[in-house]
Amino acid sequence: MSTQMIGAEEVAKALNTSKEYAYKVIRKLNEEMEEKGMLVVKGKVSADYFAGRYFGKDGGSDVR
Rank of each mutant, 00 (worst) to 15 (best):
Gln4Thr: 09
Ala51Ser: 09
Glu32Gln: 08
Gly7Ala: 02
Phe55His: 08
Ser61Arg: 15
Ala14Gln: 09
Phe50Ser: 04
Tyr49Phe: 15
Arg27Gly: 05
Gly43Trp: 00
Ser18Asn: 03
Glu35Lys: 15
Arg27Ser: 11
Ser46Val: 08
Gly7Arg: 05
Val25Gly: 12
Phe55Tyr: 09
Glu32Gly: 04
Ser61His: 09
Leu39Gly: 00
Glu32Asp: 11
Gly43Thr: 00
Val25Cys: 12
Asn16Phe: 04
Val40Leu: 02
Leu39Phe: 07
Glu9Ser: 14
Tyr49Arg: 06
Ala51Asn: 12
Gly37Phe: 00
Val63Gln: 01
Ser18His: 05
Asn30Cys: 12
Ala22Glu: 05
Glu20Thr: 15
Tyr49Gly: 07
Glu34Pro: 04
Met1Gly: 15
Glu9His: 05
Ala22His: 03
Gly56Leu: 13
Arg27Trp: 11
Arg53Cys: 11
Arg64Trp: 09
Leu39Thr: 01
Gln4Ala: 14
Leu15Gly: 04
Ala8Gln: 10
Leu15Ser: 05
Gly60Tyr: 01
Glu35Val: 04
Tyr21Cys: 15
Ala47Asp: 06
Val45Gln: 01
Asp48Gly: 01
Glu34Trp: 11
Ala12Arg: 02
Ala47Val: 04
Ile6Val: 14
Tyr54Arg: 06
Lys36Ser: 12
Ile6Cys: 10
Asn30His: 02
Ala22Tyr: 03
Met33Trp: 05
Lys19Ile: 14
Val45Met: 00
Leu29Phe: 12
Gly52Gln: 10
Tyr54Asp: 01
Gly60Asn: 04
Val41Asn: 05
Val25Ser: 08
Val63Glu: 00
Tyr23Ile: 12
Met38Phe: 15
Ser2Val: 13
Ala14Arg: 02
Met33Phe: 06
Val45Arg: 02
Tyr49Val: 03
Val63His: 06
Asn16Ile: 08
Val41Met: 06
Ser61Val: 13
Ser18Trp: 09
Val63Ile: 14
Ala12Cys: 06
Tyr54Ile: 03
Lys42Ile: 06
Glu31Phe: 10
Glu31Asn: 10
Glu32Ala: 03
Glu10Met: 08
Arg53Pro: 04
Lys24Ala: 13
Val40Ser: 05
Arg27Phe: 15
Val41Gln: 08
Gly52Arg: 09
Ala8Tyr: 06
Arg53Ile: 08
Met38Asn: 08
Glu9Arg: 13
Gly43His: 02
Arg64Ala: 12
Met33Lys: 10
Val40Arg: 03
Lys24Phe: 09
Arg27Leu: 06
Tyr23Gly: 02
Lys57Arg: 06
Glu32Asn: 11
Lys19Asp: 13
Val41Ala: 08
Gly56Gln: 12
Gly37Val: 01
Glu35Phe: 10
Thr3Trp: 11
Lys28Cys: 07
Phe55Ala: 08
Ser2Phe: 14
Thr17Arg: 13
Glu9Tyr: 04
Ala51Arg: 07
Leu29Asp: 08
Ser2Thr: 10
Ser61Asp: 05
Lys13Phe: 14
Ile26Arg: 04
Gln4Ile: 07
Ile6Ser: 14
